[in-house]
């Protein structure tokens, strides 16, 4: 396994276990690599569209489907609550964790709360639709907006 894959797995496993994104310092200690090496690897993972970083260049904004910051899409799995980046990623959290979950989000227009139970075989029916505002070719033009 190459070093960037090892880092990617460590990031995702940290988020799965803790429901928060790890810091550069935490990854440096966990993998025995310098902070500079971790920062450089973050940039490579960003270039490969694995991570999205915050403006400081080292805090994780997105490790899809997980969000490194609070969002309107909360997903409870077991005793942990994760934040997801969008509607797609809200279902992506239970899919990635191979576990049942409870999505708590909202209707983007009415702001009415929207709750979706997601079993191992998928979500229970809920009256809702998902609107994709951005064409696939432009998703990464501004992935935070997408």
């Amino acid at each position: 396994m190459d070093a960037d894959t090892e880092l990617r797995l460590a990031i995702y496993r940290h988020i799965a276990a803790n429901a928060v994104a790890p810091s550069v310092t935490q990854m440096s200690r966990a993998l025995g690599r310098s902070a500079a090496e971790i920062r450089a690897a973050y940039q490579r993972l960003y270039a490969r569209r694995v991570l999205v970083l915050q403006d400081d260049g080292e805090s994780i904004r997105m490790a899809p489907p997980f969000s490194g910051v609070e969002t309107q899409h909360r997903v409870r799995v077991g005793d942990k609550e994760y934040f997801a980046n969008c509607a797609w990623d809200a279902l992506g959290v239970p899919a990635a964790l191979h576990a049942a979950g409870q999505v708590s989000s909202r209707c983007e227009q009415s702001l009415e709360p929207l709750s979706i139970r997601v079993g191992r075989d998928g979500p229970e029916p809920v009256p809702c639709v998902i609107h994709f505002a951005v064409p696939a070719a432009h998703w990464w033009d501004d992935i935070v907006y997408t």
């Binding site: 797609w88 990623d89 997601v118 609107h131």
Partner: peptide, 18 residues
């Protein structure tokens, strides 16, 4: 833009994140 159903979204979630 296009609308996607919850079932379609689940299949996208599995394809991307499983």
């Amino acid at each position: 833009r296009p609308l996607v159903s919850l079932e379609q979204l689940w299949r996208l979630a599995l394809a991307w994140y499983e």
